[in-house]
């Protein structure tokens, strides 16, 4: 690990659960703000530190950050070994679905499919995975049905927006990897269907 990165990780670890803000880190480390910004960006990109958007608290270590510090491993530049982790967030259909979710906040699977120009099955799988890690929740009231034989579609709400990168949902392995926070989340049991009471 470079001296700067190691120093910053150590200071953040010592700060505990409230974490440290960048200004305080620069002061305590005796570094310029620009040097700290640059190092923090690398640490963020590697999923070693996290700060919730809009949070009043400072940066804290992720599990990966704590693990690295505990192991005393070095953070080196260059290739980082074989790729065994989650796939990088790419500008594909899931990324478009995630963008559409962040724009609409409340939505049906069909609305997302139209906005993201992808198949409804892909949207449903993505929503299913995100619901099982409590990123989205089905709303109590369904969409008003278009005809008498329909119950109306399930409406969903985005309840955890961690940033612009779409979380990677792997239903087979039962995990969601959040590229914004560096968290790997295990899925809970499938979310039950909401009531069949349509909106309005």
């Amino acid at each position: 690990m470079s001296w700067t990165s190691h120093t910053l990780l150590t200071l953040i670890a010592q700060a505990g659960e409230n974490g440290l803000r960048v200004n305080h880190l620069a002061e305590q480390a005796g570094l310029t703000r620009a040097a700290v910004d640059s190092a923090m960006e690398r640490l963020r990109n590697r999923g070693l530190i996290y700060r919730a958007p809009g949070a009043q608290t400072g940066y804290t270590l992720t599990d990966a950050g704590r693990g690295l510090l505990a192991a005393g491993k070095l953070l080196k530049s260059g290739p980082k070994g074989g790729h065994t982790g989650p796939r990088a967030s790419t500008p594909g259909a899931r990324s478009r679905i995630w963008n559409a979710m962040r724009i609409r906040i409340k939505f049906t699977a069909d609305e997302l499919a139209v906005l993201a120009n992808t198949g409804p099955e892909n949207v449903r799988k993505f929503l299913n995975g995100l619901a099982r890690v409590d990123y989205v929740r089905p709303m109590a009231r369904r969409e008003a049905p278009g005809n008498p034989s329909s119950n109306g579609r399930v409406r969903w709400a985005l309840v955890r927006d961690t940033g612009p990168a779409a979380p990677a949902v792997n239903l087979e392995k039962g995990v969601v990897f959040d590229h914004n926070t560096g968290e790997r989340l295990a899925m809970a049991d499938p979310v039950p269907e909401p009531s069949r009471k349509p909106r309005g």
């Binding site: 923090m40 958007p53 612009p164």
Partner: peptide, 29 residues
């Protein structure tokens, strides 16, 4: 991949910039 903001009655320049930073996942401290 545009950043999308919905105007709010309570918007001030500070509120607006904070929300923009949050949507972009930029440090807003």
């Amino acid at each position: 991949g545009a950043v999308y903001l919905r105007g709010k009655e309570q918007w001030t320049p500070h509120f607006f910039l904070s929300e923009l930073a949050e949507k972009l996942a930029v440090d807003d401290s």
